[in-house]
Design a protein around this nucleic acid. Structure first.
Lengths: 365, 365
DNA sequence: TTGAAAGCGCTAACAC
DNA sequence: GTGTTAGCGCTTTCAA
């Protein structure tokens, strides 16, 4: 069955219909409904009344065609985990506040077509719907600019969140990772830790690279020593932690590139009979909800995903409306906040010889 | 600055332009681009080539106006927590698979306008954009039908997820809460627990009511005894748990209406010197990521938010395309799954006298 | 303050 | 196979 709008429902009310019902021209009706000043008060009142009674609703699709403003912004963020979901919520709220709505989409691989075209197809799907701007959370830092050329070639503003694409002409909003890592380092130093470790994420992610350099830098500056191990994914955290903790000179604290690694570290410590925080202080990064569920709750650097989403939306909209015109891409890094919980304490004065400490509570899984 | 589509970008390519470039009529171009069979192979090839070269992209806004199919579905779900986010992801993936995109929106209260109009405004915002269907996660079970009359009056299919609105003409997808609660009860019974408790949620939420009746029913059937305490929100869980555990006849196990309550219960138990699971077995509901982070990890009834979202999307789309025409609202309840973890063990044979057990380890926070 | 005409980009319907 | 015509609901422009 063909489903043209004319068959769609009983209430097929458009401007023409209201014009007929009120005896005014379509144009006057249009003006009245859009609150234009050049309509007589009486006329407007009558028109609004009739529109209301007939259940009229404007068609933003058509408005979009005419004006080029669909009222939609593409939100290319997968709401998984606290971080993604937080950004989505922040962006949503700001968009709505400014009368926009987010068209949600993220990389989705059609088995038939393979991974290759997925990224480009994603862009096309939203561009074809004439979104006015795009907010993107890149999968990794190596997304080829090619895919996004289409976006700015069409004059559609693009903002990336959390991951900065250096070779792309796009605005960016993220966390000040270096500052956050420095906070973690300074917290541990203040507690007297001098021999520490860092469980780092893959360097190809700029955020992880920044956290690493920020942390190592701060520790080095204080003449502490830091062993860094880079891991592939959270699953590897447990093994890596064990490796670190078996070192002759066992670190008294470890800084994690991400909260996700914490569970693995806690398990490793438990297996080795080390107590957190007494034998090992742990600091995470992100403040996922996981952090406060752990025992002991995790000291961590709190990011502000909601704020990142909000600011990204603000920037896109400002670009759309021409309020923001800087030729240079905007870069915004929100300062994170250290949340001290139970996983960090003063470094003990006891010599931290691995074998001894491990023997003391062996079997205490 | 006025931003009509004509000023938008250099590539302002439409059918007319391609028609001119190829020397064919607009109609032929349209047919070729939509892969209609009645176009000569040669013609099509030429047209597609030119379209590609000019960087043509169809305007789905216009297509929507013409055909009444905007290609968008309203997703009125806030992606907060594992559950909301899971539903959003499930719905998204299915929608995309079927060439739709979700327009994301949820209740958002404009300080200026107050709460009153928020629900209706939300509906209007998506309806004005001519979504073809609506997937809704109701805030509570008392959402007045009024707000959704607009939806079905316009012939737009509506599916609610997780919460069934009995007085609304809408399809529904959720969890089989009764069955899930029964699983929890049977698990505890199988472990030998006879004296149990239930930390219930407010009855006004149908899901909580179902979990309660399912659990109480199964326990009663096995001649066990169950003390139920209804709480307002997760914050109240800790106090309620304490109350339950102070009862003369202390229960050996507790079933939580939701995983959220677990942290409060764990804390209460710790305060009273009770060990989980030895002194108290705990079963949750939902299997949020929280469940596996706790110590000990929580035995719980796993819901399938992703599946719920997916099925909801399937139903809306089937309604849109006329594949599903049942006059009666469809109701689908996905069967949950019991996930046994470390928070439940066999009921101990030791008499469970509260004062004694508590004294034994008093001060052991 | 109001109206008429033209057109946004596209498609359904029908004719050849 | 291909083209012509009309129109979707609305806004811009210009005229009254």
């Amino acid at each position: 069955m063909p489903r043209g709008p004319q068959f769609e429902n009983v209430f097929h009310v458009n401007l023409r219909r209201i014009a007929e019902a009120t005896g005014h021209s379509q144009m006057t009706v249009s003006r009245a409904l859009r609150d234009r000043p050049d309509v007589a008060v009486e006329t407007r009142k009558r028109i609004l009344g009739v529109a209301e009674k007939l259940g009229y609703r404007p068609n933003l699709l058509v408005q979009g065609v005419k004006t080029g403003r669909s009222g939609n912004i593409a939100l290319l963020i997968c709401p998984s985990g606290d971080f993604g979901a937080g950004m989505v919520r922040g962006a949503h709220d700001e968009l709505v506040r400014r009368q926009y709505l987010p068209l949600l989409h993220w990389k989705w691989v059609d088995a038939a077509k393979g991974v290759a075209g997925a990224e480009l197809e994603m862009i096309h799907r939203v561009l074809d719907r004439r979104v006015e701007g795009v907010i993107l959370f890149p999968q990794d830092d190596s997304v080829p600019d090619l895919y996004f050329r289409e976006v700015w070639q069409r004059g559609v503003p693009l903002v990336t969140v959390d991951r900065h694409l250096p070779r792309t002409h796009a605005d960016f909003v993220g966390t000040d990772d270096q500052a956050g890592a420095r906070m973690a380092a300074e917290h541990l130093l203040a507690l007297g830790h001098r021999c520490v470790a860092h469980l780092a994420g893959k360097r190809k992610y700029g955020t992880y690279a920044d956290r690493r350099s920020g942390f190592e830098g701060a520790i080095a500056k204080a003449k502490g020593c830091c062993v860094t191990v880079e891991i592939e994914d959270p699953e590897a955290a447990s093994r890596a932690a064990e490796r670190i903790l078996r070192a002759t000179q066992r670190p008294t604290a470890v800084f994690l590139a991400a909260d996700h690694y914490a569970l693995g570290v806690y398990h490793a410590a438990a297996r080795m009979g080390l107590r957190i925080p007494d034998d090992l202080s742990v600091v995470g990064f992100a403040d996922l909800s996981l952090a406060s569920c752990l025992t002991p709750p995790l000291t961590t650097v709190r990011q502000d995903p909601y704020g990142i989403g909000r600011e990204a939306a603000r920037i896109v909209i400002d670009r759309c409306s021409g309020r923001l015109t800087s030729k240079e891409p905007v870069q915004l890094r929100l300062t994170p906040e250290l949340i001290v919980r139970g996983s960090t304490v003063k470094a003990s004065d006891r010599p931290n010889d691995t074998s001894q400490s491990a023997r003391r509570t062996r079997g205490g899984t």
